[in-house]
Simulated scan of single mutants.
Amino acid sequence: MLLELRDLHVNYGNVEALHGINLTVNEGEIVTILGANGAGKSTTLNSICGLVKASKGEILLDGKPIHTVPAHNIVKLGISQSPEGRRVFSTLTVEENMELGAFTLSDKEKIARNKEWIYDLFPRLLERRGQLAGTLSGGEQQMLAIGRALMSNPRLLLLDEPSLGLAPILVKSIFDTIRKINKRGLTVILVEQNARAALKLADRGYVMEVGNIVLADDADTLLSNPDIQSAYLGGKGH
């Protein structure tokens, strides 16, 4: 098992956002977390990468606790996030954004190889490498956010709403790329509003409601679950 969350609680001030969730991710899997806005999905990702601290419970990577480790050291341990809303550095170029993603690496050859692979995944970024990130389209910024996250050579990639606000053709392209990334050996946790696309891509899924995990199963079972269909998939599955 690569990652395990055990009885994880997270508070924002007096408000408890996560009420003791348990979640596992195995090496090489794509695991999706589904749920409405405010369910606690982003908080879960932010707690894994150290941006918010657990008030109780444990986060284990390879069986070792990481919930007390500072966020920049969690990147060094092999966990990287492409955040919701992309959050690229708008006044820096595509290339500069990518290089910032490699801040934990000192091996220049490895950085160059990573960059080459990412430009191969996203040829549009190669075309735009000298352009300011703030002038890119939404789809290009999403590619850059994922590319920047990959520059640190992660073992576990956290993707928070990668399809949000994108045209359907770009959504398909982003999901195809996530599949390619996974085939290369990366483990992925995918938080996604587009539940059908996420479940078709994932091995397993968790459903969150107001800070609790209410359902966990393999992706095919969740896709055919009538409650999931009515809540997240707009009625009957196709």
Rank of each mutant, 00 (worst) to 15 (best):
L3V: 15
L3M: 14
R6M: 06
R6A: 05
R6C: 06
D7I: 09
L8N: 08
V10I: 06
Y12A: 03
N14H: 07
N14V: 10
A17G: 00
A17L: 01
A17D: 00
L18T: 04
H19A: 09
L23K: 06
V25N: 09
N26A: 13
A36R: 07
A39S: 14
L45I: 06
I48A: 11
C49S: 14
L51Y: 06
L51W: 07
V52W: 02
K56A: 11
G57I: 11
G57D: 07
L61P: 05
D62W: 04
K64D: 03
P65W: 13
I66C: 12
V69W: 08
V69P: 08
V69F: 08
A71S: 12
I74D: 11
I74E: 11
K76D: 05
K76N: 08
L77Q: 10
L77E: 08
L77D: 04
G78V: 10
I79V: 13
S80T: 13
S82Q: 08
P83M: 04
E84F: 06
R86F: 08
R87E: 14
V88D: 13
S90Y: 14
T91E: 15
L92M: 15
T93C: 02
E95S: 14
F103N: 05
L105A: 07
L105F: 03
S106L: 12
D107L: 04
K108A: 11
K110Q: 05
K110V: 06
I111F: 02
E116L: 07
W117I: 14
I118L: 10
I118E: 05
L121R: 10
L121C: 02
L121W: 05
P123Y: 01
R124K: 11
L125H: 07
L125T: 09
L126D: 10
R129A: 03
R129I: 05
R129S: 09
G130T: 13
Q131K: 03
T135D: 13
G138A: 09
G139V: 08
Q142W: 05
Q142M: 10
M143Q: 14
M143F: 08
I146P: 13
G147M: 08
M151D: 00
M151R: 12
S152L: 07
L159M: 11
L164K: 07
G165H: 01
P168V: 00
L170W: 02
V171D: 06
V171S: 03
K172C: 01
I174P: 08
I174E: 05
R179I: 14
I181M: 11
N182T: 10
K183P: 00
R184V: 08
G185Q: 07
L186M: 15
T187H: 03
T187K: 04
I189E: 13
I189D: 10
E192H: 02
Q193S: 02
Q193C: 01
Q193L: 02
Q193M: 02
N194R: 09
A195W: 02
R196A: 04
R196Q: 06
A197F: 01
A198D: 03
L199W: 04
L201S: 06
A202R: 12
D203P: 12
R204F: 05
R204S: 08
Y206R: 11
Y206A: 10
Y206T: 14
V214T: 15
L215H: 04
D217V: 07
S224W: 05
N225M: 00
D227N: 09
I228K: 01
I228N: 01
S230G: 00
L233M: 00
G237M: 11
H238D: 01
